[in-house]
Design a protein around this nucleic acid. Structure first.
Lengths: 355, 355
DNA sequence: ATCGCCGATCGAATCGATTCGGCCTAGACT
DNA sequence: AGTCTAGGCCGAATCGATTCGATCGGCGAT
């Protein structure tokens, strides 16, 4: 109505110009329905004349009830997540798994802040959601998802709900790794764990910390190790990073009199940190201390072939993506548990004979 | 109407239950408008009773005309992009830059396929778009963006349109690096470039290839090098990866009689590949050949401190994000050009005296 | 020659929320 | 006491497309 510059043309405008009804114009675009070729061409021509760029995705998604977007919820901020190779591999797997949907991937972070008007897990136009390594801290958000009827899949996160879960044999894998260390002759083993709680408390493994654990992954891996080394103690890191590994190892190796002969790290990044700290202290790996990792990634700058429990990260992501596809097509969701394999590198060896 | 299980409650249902009009209920949620506290509580209570999870983002975005989502267009598939540390850093910067919007990041890839019904750059519910290292192959898509009136910012991509661009001093930086090599005494220098065209043609730098170049970044860096070494030739890689660097270097170093004394790689990953290939051939870096990279990232597994032109990747991403925020608030977009700095590591040295 | 059928098109309802203009009432001001 | 003001709330239009059911020719079958 107003001489207001360029009101963007709508489907109605196109239809009018092509001399057809709006419904026909819609069909010409979406292709779902019988439209004569001539009409279709006419509509397309009109659209082109008007500079119409195709149906508005917002209106379309409102009507269709689908947005064509799958959300990926990362517990950390984007920066942190991208620094973790495991996360990236999963992301890649997810994008592969949902490929048949032709859907986009929306990065969501569970920062805990409930910013008004911000696009959060509770208010994002997504058709489904993949929770990557999320703690139950997400309880509220998950509840919102359930209410909104948005299907969700969790990767390595004990959601405690009826959400299908893609996981690995954390406990058994770690036990296998620990068993290997015992076979090498180790008896004095320390553990560097992933964070146990939302606060990411860093420090010694106290009973209290374990009791308050909300991170299944860390707990399970610890349990697996303790099935072999019941007395094993250690430290919890505040994140899965080299930095944190260094920090933890410095504490564990501080006193030359009480040094363990092997350290089980719950991630390769932590393991890399442990190795670095050990070497800084003049220790030799695996001569003075064996180091076992978890993940099976290549760690930036690490000069060793890490002995580790290799997990199929990409496959996990893909499985999650496939589960999303299933759920969206009405099939019942399906949890899956993958198996990790022990990769023996050059960071483990029999303990140096006590002198 | 139907006894159909649980039709999800809508704002209208909530309003009815709370005994207020729909408009009031809306105001109670969005908070924009005068609503008495009592009424608000009543609405919230009704919502809670009904299990209403808040306004539907699809409807909201249709009405508001904003979706709260910013698209990031990567030229490669997600997997490939995530393997490039520079891209990840930029992504991180972007997410930092758009933080004030509270917007989500939608990953879009320019695969070239125009999948029907797939969420692509041409049909995604985004408020703005950041093009990361995109070639003009995107022409069609960019045209669509323009028609849809979606603001866009380009990072290191010559869009040829009126899109604000975030870039770095590719030419000058490379010239500085080349100059440094010349000062060391090098005269026989080869270059390993990024892809020049959409086809990612791999092979020798022919005049024809350069003429048909659609990649400004590669062209500019090459031009910078040639300002110092006009005769320098080399090879184009098909991607920025260690693999491609190896491939290119093998070709360049194949003939012991015509080996250059230095190689300028247009990315650190390529440089890492070059070094690896050289060492495989029994050559010593920097003894037998100096290697100069570009980017300033830490390369996985590289045992050298690469001499490289460090660019502020995160800052670039952040600038792009900030530009998006500006454009969305109506301010005119603003192009920016950052400066790279020469980091001298241990991969460059004077050429071995000819015997 | 007539009936039935199918494909092309059209009208109108719908998706779910936001928002503008108007109405009403209670308190304030003179 | 009368009127003005403003807060609080409501109705209804609107965002832009999709889709169901109805309509209307035209063509093959009987």
């Amino acid at each position: 109505m107003q001489p207001d510059a360029a009101q963007r043309p709508t489907l109605a405008d196109v239809a009018a110009r092509a001399g057809v009804s709006q419904s026909t114009a819609s069909l010409a675009f979406s292709g779902s329905g019988p439209v004569s070729d001539a009409t279709k061409q006419r509509v397309l021509a009109a659209a082109s004349d008007l500079g119409y760029a195709g149906p508005d995705p917002r209106a379309r998604s409102l009507r269709r009830g689908r947005s064509g977007i799958v959300g990926v919820v990362l517990e950390e901020r984007v920066r942190a997540a991208f620094l973790d190779p495991v996360k990236i591999q999963m992301l890649d797997g997810i994008s592969e798994g949902i490929a048949p949907l032709g859907a986009g991937l929306l990065l969501l972070t569970d920062t805990g802040e409930t910013d008004e008007s911000a696009v959060s897990i509770e208010s994002a136009p997504v058709d489904a959601v993949v929770l990557v390594g999320c703690s139950p801290r997400l309880g509220v958000s998950i509840e919102a998802l359930r209410r909104r009827g948005i299907p969700a899949v969790a990767i390595e996160g004990d959601t405690g709900e009826d959400i299908p879960e893609i996981s690995i044999d954390n406990l058994q894998a770690t036990r296998r790794g620990a068993e290997y260390l015992r076979q090498l002759g180790h008896t004095d083993v320390a553990i560097v764990t992933l964070p146990f709680d939302a606060a990411r408390t860093r420090g010694p493994l106290t009973e209290e910390l374990l009791r308050s654990s909300t991170a299944a992954t860390a707990s399970q891996r610890l349990a697996g190790a303790r099935e072999i080394f019941p007395e094993a103690t250690g430290r919890a890191a505040a994140a899965s990073s080299i930095e944190e590994g260094i920090e933890a190892a410095r504490a564990l190796l501080a006193d030359p009199a009480s040094r363990p002969t092997a350290i089980i790290a719950q991630s390769d990044l932590l393991a890399a940190g442990v190795i670095q700290a050990a070497e800084e202290l003049g220790m030799h790996v695996p001569g003075d201390v064996s180091v076992l990792g978890f993940d099976g990634i290549r760690v930036d700058g690490l000069q060793h072939d890490l002995t580790t429990l290799a997990q199929p990260s990409v496959a996990k992501g893909r499985a999650a993506g496939e589960a999303v596809v299933q759920m969206l097509s009405g099939e019942p969701p399906e949890s899956r548990c993958f198996t990790s394999t022990l990769h023996v590198g050059d960071t483990t060896a029999p303990p140096r004979a006590a002198c």
